[in-house]
């Protein structure tokens, strides 16, 4: 069995974001990058499935981006993926979902994976499109927003998270693609011995342009801080001063403190 896990490297969401020169996206300098949170669940689920099947499946982890993404790839290898594909694209920030999906599909088509795992969305762009687009381009069934996953004999039984705590159960035959939601499992931390072992795992590099040259279907502009709508106040200072001020405000503005 061949499994593909697609991961993205995103900035730490606690960073201070500034627009790039053309305000199409953020300026990358000074940002610390890490694996997209949703993808951590995708990696973990693939590794759990490999364990369930006695180690038989081979897991390929794929990431598109400049050299910095190799760090996220190495983490996935240390968690238990077997080999990696780095699709080099220095202008990854200007690639929109259709282009990213076309690149992944161009690579995946040649291998014929039985199962593809992706995060349901990225933390930075949040389009929730790439996984489903890859499945559509490959012509395989897919389902999204998994909070439960089971596999037996070529059949995936997926639990989708719907709104308000309701879930939906779906069955689909492989080859298939699933997108993973937060809370699907408990992602493990890579251990030191596994980090060492991962160093020997193979990373194959492709150039994005050799796989697909689809033009973008959308353009991006005016990347900005949202206009402040509320009339809220921002308080800064020493903890003691802050506590005093907050108590005065709560007494004045709410009926909960007398």
């Amino acid at each position: 069995m061949k499994i593909l896990v697609c991961i993205k490297q995103v900035p730490d969401m606690e960073s201070h974001f500034r627009p790039n020169g053309s305000a199409t996206w953020f300026d990358e300098s000074d940002l610390a990058f890490r694996m997209n949170e949703y993808d951590e669940y995708a990696v973990e689920e693939a590794v759990k499935l490999k364990e369930q099947l006695g180690g038989e499946p081979e897991i390929t982890v794929l990431s598109i981006g400049p050299d910095r993404v190799i760090e996220a790839i190495k983490k996935a290898l240390a968690i238990g993926c077997d080999r990696a594909v780095h699709i080099n694209e220095s202008a990854v920030a200007s690639k929109e979902p259709w282009q990213i999906a076309s690149i992944i599909a161009a690579y995946a088509r040649s291998i014929q994976f039985d199962l593809v795992f992706t995060g349901m969305q990225s933390q930075d762009r949040g389009s929730a499109q790439v996984g489903v687009l890859v499945a559509e381009l490959l012509g395989i069934p897919s389902t999204t927003t998994l909070v439960g996953f089971a596999y037996a004999d070529g059949v995936v039984t997926a639990t989708r998270e719907l709104e308000g705590g309701v879930k939906g159960k779906v069955r689909l035959k492989t080859p298939a693609l699933v997108t993973c939601q937060l809370g699907l499992n408990s992602p493990r931390y890579p251990t030191l011995p596994n980090i060492m072992k991962a160093r020997k795992k193979e990373i194959t590099t492709f150039q994005a342009g050799d796989l697909s040259s689809e033009p973008p279907l959308t353009g991006s502009s005016s990347f900005r801080h949202p206009e402040k709508k509320g009339s809220g106040v921002v308080l800064e200072g020493s903890v003691d001063e802050l506590v005093e001020k907050v108590i005065v405000i709560l007494k004045d503005k709410t009926a909960v403190l007398r």
Binding site: M13, D124, R125, T218, G219, S220, S222, R224, H225
Partner: peptide, 12 residues
């Protein structure tokens, strides 16, 4: 919205 709602942008 993007970057976990911290930023906004326009998509055409």
């Amino acid at each position: 919205g993007c970057c976990n709602a911290k930023m906004h942008r326009n998509v055409t």
